[in-house]
Every structure is written in structure tokens, then in C-alpha cells.
């Protein structure tokens, strides 16, 4: 019993440090962190096999929140239960929290630096371009089945969000309910 407990301590520490290091060193957001986690836990540590990992990623993706955090939570849960999930979450969240807190404190000085100000101004255009491109890819993906219902929901939601300033949460709830209902209805008609 005694030995096993020490091993568990090690396990939690290993979970924490692995997620901490990956989160601290990985630039480029969710997908990159996710594939790093996959490499580490599937290929290096061999704690989770590839098929199971794919399912775990699908679950992480279907929950709200940040992909990278969700993925680390479910890996932690798989390896060491609820405590593991909390440990991996903390490991993933701590580095960006510390870094951004520091930046936030020095934001004013940081922003007033001429070079930084110009860089940030330039990046505003980049952020806009990325969002426009994402709108295009996302909409194309939504409309690829050529379903009228998807088109109506897309236009309705866009009008509500851009012109009517409807609360995003309301839009998500309405679309989620309608989508769930449509999926249910479709599966019923397919069965007949």
C-alpha cells in the first residue's frame, strides 16, 4: 500500500509537469498543444492507445471551453481520475496565467513602446484577416451538405449577432435546441 501511494504521488507530479512544460513551451494555440499532448501520452509514455485518444479528443472537442485544457483534463481523468483531471488542468493553465498576468501589469509601458505599438497596430489587420478567413472556412463547412436549415440558421444567427446585438448565449441556446431537434427528427425519418 505504502509503495503504491508513493507511485501515485509521482504520477500526479508527472502529469502536472508534463502539462506544464507543454503548455509553457507551445506557441500557436489549441491544435498544436493537443498534438503535443497526444505525442507525449500516446507515443512516448504509452499510457493511452491511439484509438482511445481519438475518442478522448472528440469528447474534449464536444465540450465548451478551450481545446487544449479540455484535452489535458480528459487525459488526467483517464490516467488518475478526478484528481488527475484537476492536476492536469492546473498544469496547463498556470503558465499562460502567469505570463499574461505579468504582461497585464506592464501592459501600459509595453503598449507605449513605439516598436510594440506599431507591431500591435499592424497585427490588428492580421487578426481581422484571420477572422474573415475563418468565417469563410467555417461557413463553407456548415453549408457543404447544402441544407436549407443550416443556411437559414447561419443567416439568422449572423443577423442577430451583428445587427440586433442579441446575446451570443441566447443565439447558441436557440441553435443548439433547434439543431438537436432537427438531428432527432432526421434520425427518425431515416429509420422509417
Amino acid at each position: 500500500m505504502e509503495v503504491k501511494k508513493i507511485e501515485t504521488d509521482h504520477l500526479l507530479w508527472k502529469l502536472f509537469s508534463t502539462c506544464f512544460v507543454i503548455s509553457a513551451c507551445t506557441f500557436g494555440g489549441g491544435l498544436v498543444i493537443m498534438s503535443m499532448l497526444q505525442k507525449k501520452f500516446v507515443e512516448e509514455l504509452k499510457w493511452i492507445d491511439q484509438d482511445e485518444m481519438m475518442d478522448l479528443i472528440a469528447i474534449a472537442q464536444s465540450c465548451p471551453g478551450v481545446m487544449a485544457v479540455n484535452t489535458s483534463i480528459i487525459i488526467g481523468y483517464r490516467v488518475a481520475g478526478p484528481l488527475g483531471a484537476i492536476i492536469t488542468m492546473l498544469g496547463t493553465v498556470t503558465p499562460p496565467m502567469v505570463i499574461l498576468s505579468v504582461i497585464s501589469v506592464f501592459y501600459k509601458q509595453f503598449r507605449e513602446n513605439d516598436v510594440v505599438a506599431l507591431l500591435l497596430k499592424g497585427m490588428q489587420a492580421g487578426v481581422a484577416a484571420v477572422m474573415i478567413h475563418m468565417t469563410y472556412t467555417m461557413s463553407a463547412n456548415v453549408l457543404k451538405d447544402k441544407k436549407l436549415s443550416a443556411l437559414i440558421m447561419l443567416i439568422g444567427a449572423a443577423v442577430a449577432a451583428v445587427f440586433l446585438n442579441v446575446d451570443i448565449i441566447v443565439i447558441l441556446l436557440v441553435c443548439g435546441v433547434v439543431g438537436g431537434f432537427l438531428a432527432f427528427y432526421e434520425s427518425r425519418t431515416e429509420q422509417k
Binding site: 463547412n141 456548415v142 440558421m153 443565439i171 441553435c175 443548439g176 439543431g179
Partner: peptide
């Protein structure tokens, strides 16, 4: 099924964000 229903809403949200970020830039 629910997630599939959310996709148009998510696309619309990205669009709203794109409009605002473009106006800002």
C-alpha cells in the same frame, strides 16, 4: 446532434467577430 446544430451559430459568431475586428482595424 446538438453540436452539429451549434455549428451555424458558431460560424455566425465568427462572422460577427470578423466584422468587428475589421472595423477596428
Amino acid at each position: 446532434g446538438v453540436l452539429k446544430g451549434l455549428r451555424p451559430a458558431i460560424a455566425a459568431m465568427i462572422l460577427a467577430s470578423a466584422v468587428k475586428m475589421t472595423c477596428n482595424a
